[in-house]
């Protein structure tokens, strides 16, 4: 059966399982990030992750274990800076991400270690090891449990931080939780999607589902579904047409965004006509 050939390779199974789990995590967090206008944070964190991986590899540390704490630290730093406002959040992200990228590239070329730069940048479906899958499962469990437990509070903080503070919620903690989970998801997802493309997993599904859905709960649920569809379709395309995996997934997402935008436009037209009548 040629169609099911995709499931016969262990590396594809790994990419599939790991990718679906990471897509789900990313899409859940993405809704909050997009609505809080923090879309670029995933991008900034993945660049930091690249820098950390490069340094880790050069120094002979296990790269992922080395990168995770550094990216978490960067996530805290980014949130802090965004809140304090001396340097604006978007500028801070640009500073940190280009800085980390520059550092990573320099260390890589100086150390003389031969790493496959392209797969770091754009991801590789061959990249996931059994260990990575275990990490993916762990991150997935942490993200979903946290998200379900704090769902109502995440909604409140995302919708209105000032109000949440006023009714006595510790909004800082929820921002930290979101930053922490985003950092974890980013580092784990980087191998598969690549430094430059991982943030698409967070942003696209949320933006796509917001074209049509207008309740928070339905946006969260559809983003999760959309992210899995986008990932699976992209991976299949990548396998059968030998295109780069990360890029194929992004292209599928762009296609879905176009379809949903048109559908959302039509939906608005119809409902505004209804209101006039």
């Amino acid at each position: 059966m040629e169609i099911f050939e995709i499931f016969e390779h262990t590396f594809m199974l790994r990419a599939l399982i790991g990718g679906v789990l990471i897509s789900l995590c990313a899409s859940l967090l993405g809704v909050s990030l997009v609505l809080k206008r923090y879309s670029m944070i995933g991008d900034g964190l993945s660049h930091t992750g690249f820098g950390a991986l490069a340094i880790g590899a050069a120094a002979g540390f296990p790269p992922l274990e080395f990168a995770i704490p550094i990216v978490i630290a960067a996530a805290f730093l980014l949130l802090r800076i965004s809140e304090n406002g001396k340097i604006k959040g978007d500028a801070a992200i640009a500073l940190i991400s280009t800085g980390a990228l520059a550092l990573g590239i320099t260390v890589t070329s100086l150390s003389g270690i031969n790493i496959d730069l392209e797969s770091y940048m754009f991801g590789s479906i061959l990249a996931l090891s059994d260990n990575d899958i275990v990490l993916c499962v762990l991150v997935f469990i942490v993200v979903t449990v946290m998200f379900v437990l704090f769902y109502n509070r995440i909604f409140a903080v995302t919708f209105d931080e000032n109000f949440s503070k006023a009714i006595g919620m510790k909004t800082g903690i929820y921002n930290i939780i979101i930053a922490l989970l985003t950092a974890l998801t980013t580092v784990i997802g980087m191998k598969l999607m690549g430094t430059l493309l991982i943030s698409s997993l967070m942003i696209f599904p949320a933006v796509i589902s917001m074209r049509i859905f207008s309740r928070f709960k339905s946006v969260v649920i559809t983003s999760a579904v959309i992210s899995v569809i986008g990932f699976f379709t992209g991976l299949c395309i990548s396998f059968y047409f030998s295109t780069p995996a990360g890029a194929s997934i992004v292209l599928v997402n762009i296609f879905m965004l176009t379809v949903f935008s048109i559908a959302g436009y039509v939906k608005n037209k119809i409902s505004s006509k209804k209101n006039i009548v």
């Binding site: 909604f155 409140a156 919708f159 949440s164 009714i167 207008s214 309740r215």
Partner: peptide, 16 residues
């Protein structure tokens, strides 16, 4: 913000 009126009002109950 994509949220229903009910979702927004209900979030007021999260206090203390």
């Amino acid at each position: 913000f994509p949220a229903s009126v009910f979702e927004v009002v209900l979030s007021g109950r999260l206090g203390g």
